Computed example of a mutant assay.
Amino acid sequence: MSGYLTTHVLDTARGCPAQGIAITLHRIEGDSRTQVAQAVTNADGRTDAPILPQDAFAPGTYELTFAAGDYLRATGQVAGDILFLDEVPIRFGMADPDAHYHVPLLLSPFGMSTYRGS
């Protein structure tokens, strides 16, 4: 298999990459969640390496969870204990064992979106 998974985060409210966001990747199998990776975004809003590299890639259902609340608090965009967006999960499937999957997060304090990138 030569597939792999990458991600990045853009702060659409500030118009810049979102540095310092902790990301956790889980594999989902039925009711079971198994953590397979953790990373933190760099100055370009990306992880330093694929969050799921070729040697660990397997088709299946996965979930990326972004610690958006910590980032939004640290950048002064929100305050308080209850945030509109805090932990942001994105669940998706990867079926092609030879594909590059890219799942970015576009983030602001009151909205988010994602897509399958390249």
Rank of each mutant, 00 (worst) to 15 (best):
C16N: 10
L83K: 10
D48K: 06
S108W: 01
F84A: 14
P109C: 07
D81Y: 03
F92A: 06
A67R: 14
G76P: 10
L72C: 13
A37F: 08
T6I: 08
S118M: 07
T7V: 05
D44N: 12
T114L: 01
I90C: 10
G111D: 14
I23R: 03
Q35L: 13
G76L: 11
A22R: 15
A49V: 05
D86S: 14
G111C: 11
S108I: 01
Q19R: 11
A39L: 10
A95E: 07
Y62G: 02
S118C: 05
I82F: 12
Y101I: 01
G117A: 14
C16Q: 15
T6A: 07
A95D: 07
G117I: 00
G20S: 05
P89W: 13
P59A: 10
G80E: 12
G15V: 04
A49Q: 11
A99D: 08
L85M: 12
T41S: 14
P109D: 14
G60C: 06
T114R: 01
L5C: 08
L85V: 06
T61A: 09
T24H: 03
I21K: 00
P50G: 02
I82L: 14
G15T: 03
G30R: 03
V9K: 10
D48A: 13
G80V: 08
I51M: 02
V78L: 10
Q35T: 07
L5W: 02
D86F: 01
A22L: 05
I28R: 10
G15N: 11
T24L: 09
I23N: 03
A37M: 11
S32A: 07
V36F: 06
G60Y: 07
D55Q: 09
Y62R: 04
A37S: 14
L25C: 08
A18H: 08
H26C: 08
V36Q: 09
P53F: 05
T6H: 00
